[in-house]
Design a protein around this nucleic acid. Structure first.
Length: 221
DNA sequence: GAGGAGATCGTCT
DNA sequence: GACGATCTCCTCT
């Protein structure tokens, strides 16, 4: 892969990016997961902005989905999923990692979308710092991929934790330091595959990614 | 580049 | 007490 990665850091879609509205999330998680591809996930750390383009998502369908955290009903951990759409559900997994979801569907319905990978857009040095990595002035593609290609990695790059972010409104940059926005950019091709890392309902085609994008996780398609 | 195993702890049974 | 929507390191090729 010899893609010119300098363009990734040079472009700046943030000024014209519009926050996603709550009704964007108030529908079937499969539609939300697909349309989130190409949107921006933005973190504000004081005066610093860290942002990435969403390149990989997974849909979880709620209590009818055996692989979903909400499959067994409401618990203290997953309560956000049963609330209104557009809020962050952050969980801790494998003793090491946090993962970010956004709640979908009306209140009472526990559908959600898991963010699995970002393409770094701005704040790359901050991402590297948060990940405990060194990033040279002219990074190689593999070094950029290591920042955000995977749910645990992107959460660490944006300093997403359960304590800090669970239950946060992802549609309101005035009240929240973590939100989603539309820069107008659209992916040309989308690929759909089974979800990764699960054992129940593992065959359902509920993983969505931007075809050909090098920043997705897992094996190359 | 691919594959396997260990780390590590919150959550639920 | 067992498990998990993962990552990293190590070995082998």
């Amino acid at each position: 892969m010899h893609k010119d990665t300098s363009k990734i850091t040079a472009e700046s879609p943030l000024p014209r990016a519009k926050p996603l509205l709550r009704r964007f999330f108030d529908r079937d998680p499969r539609h939300v997961a697909q349309e989130l591809l190409g949107k921006l996930l933005i973190r504000r750390e004081g005066s610093v902005i860290i942002a990435g383009r969403v390149v990989e998502t997974e849909a979880y369908m709620g209590v009818t989905d055996a692989a979903a955290h909400s499959a067994a009903g409401v618990t203290a951990r997953n309560a956000v999923l049963f609330g209104p759409p557009g809020y962050a559900y952050v969980y801790f997994i494998y003793g090491n990692h946090f993962c970010l979801n956004v709640s979908c569907m009306p209140e009472g319905d526990a559908g959600c979308v898991l963010f699995r990978a970002l393409e770094p857009v701005t704040g790359l040095q901050e991402m590297a710092n948060n990940r405990g990595l060194e990033l040279p002035e002219e990074p190689r593609l593999a070094q950029l991929k290591a920042l955000t290609s995977g749910p645990g990695r992107m959460a660490e790059a944006l300093e997403i934790t359960r304590l800090r972010d669970n239950g946060k409104d992802l549609t309101n940059p005035k009240k929240s330091d973590l939100w989603l926005a539309d820069s107008g950019w659209r992916p040309s091709r989308i690929a759909i595959t089974p979800r990764i890392g699960i054992t129940k309902a593992a065959e359902e085609p509920l993983r969505f990614l931007i075809a050909g994008n090098p920043f997705t996780s897992g094996k190359k398609l």
